[in-house]
């Protein structure tokens, strides 16, 4: 009995990690962009969607060559992101934050219909790359090899990469400084415009990467952007807007809560997370690991 229990426990724990890694890939970009630009980007879900759809295009084009798509698709998304930032967001940085929020919402609507025009309204699917269709056995339990060898490492490498980038490089330190004090960074002679565009591009890349990595695990359809964005908001807000560590923590809590929620109270699994978020926000509006904010007293 004990053995059985630990087995179930272990499996659900790892499953929680899968969920967390998937959502973290998408959410990290949103969090980073908010930290530096102060914009809660609704269109981040669209980046995720486009990342997945571009993978589909690339794989279809090269007849099954999956791996390069993991880089190429997000790069194409970066182009979209940069265009959006330069053309639409840049002119209204000084306006009310609400306007920026609404602008990104407008972009969601526009991106959403464009994908339908480009790809038509059909369920699409990207096949798993060769050699990763099956399962692997870990500690006596079966796990899908794609999740173990691609999804988890991708999530982990993103955490690590972002950590190294933000803490070990000069550019990263500037970015981090910008999350602390946006006004100051301009006074220090940093090219703020370039910094913003750069950060937004990284955010778009991460969103696209999330879509690309998750593409072989699900179906692609117009409307998947709306499905993901609320969950991503949840994770980011839970962990603390703009805090990268917080996002990772938020993703972890989200994944595990969901995984064990299904095991114990399947009916209420989706309500739990919202209640948790509300409780956290009421007690700590800046999120679990967010920095202290104005208005958050």
């Amino acid at each position: 009995m004990v053995d059985f229990f630990t087995n179930v426990f272990f499996v659900q724990l790892v499953n929680g990690l899968f969920i967390a890694a998937g959502i973290y890939l998408v959410a990290s970009g949103l969090s980073l962009v908010f930290g530096v630009l102060g914009i809660l980007n609704f269109a981040h879900g669209s980046f995720y969607m486009y990342g997945a759809f571009f993978v589909f295009t690339y794989v279809g084009f090269t007849a099954g060559d999956f791996w390069p798509a993991l880089f190429i698709a997000p790069m194409v998304v970066v182009i979209l992101g940069v265009v959006m930032e330069v053309v639409f967001l840049r002119p209204i940085y000084k306006a009310d934050p609400l306007y920026q929020l609404l602008l990104t919402y407008a972009m969601v609507l526009i991106f959403g219909d464009l994908v339908k025009i480009l790809y038509g309204a059909e369920n699409l699917s990207v096949a798993r790359p060769e050699g990763f269709e099956g399962t692997v056995t870990i500690a006596g339990s079966l796990f899908p090899s794609y999740q173990i060898f691609v999804l988890l490492p991708a999530g982990f490498l993103t955490v690590l990469g972002l950590y190294l980038f933000l803490n070990r490089t000069n550019v990263g330190r500037t970015v981090r400084a910008a999350t602390q004090d946006r006004e100051m960074i301009g006074a220090l002679g940093v090219n703020v415009r370039l910094l913003y565009t750069g950060v937004f591009a990284i955010g778009a890349f991460l969103g696209g990467l999330g879509g690309a990595v998750l593409a072989p695990m699900g179906a692609l359809y117009p409307g998947m952007d709306f499905d993901v964005i609320i969950e991503v908001f949840l994770v980011v807000v839970l962990g603390g807007l703009g805090s990268m560590a917080g996002t990772a923590l938020g993703a972890l809590i989200y994944g595990e809560l969901k995984s064990f929620g299904i095991l114990w109270v399947p009916e209420l699994e989706s309500v739990f997370i919202y209640v948790l978020m509300a409780v956290v926000l009421v007690a700590r509006p800046q999120g679990l690991l967010g920095k202290k904010v104005e208005g958050g007293h």
């Binding site: 102060g38 809660l40 609320i230 309500v271 919202y274 978020m277 509300a278 926000l281 104005e294 208005g295």
Partner: peptide, 25 residues
């Protein structure tokens, strides 16, 4: 109401979604 700006927006969004989920579930 103690929160301002984006945090107020998000908090209202969260509570609104809870109301929605109650009705839905």
């Amino acid at each position: 109401i103690r929160r301002t700006h984006i945090y107020f927006a998000i908090l209202t969004l969260a509570f609104g979604h809870i109301v929605y989920l109650i009705a839905f579930k």
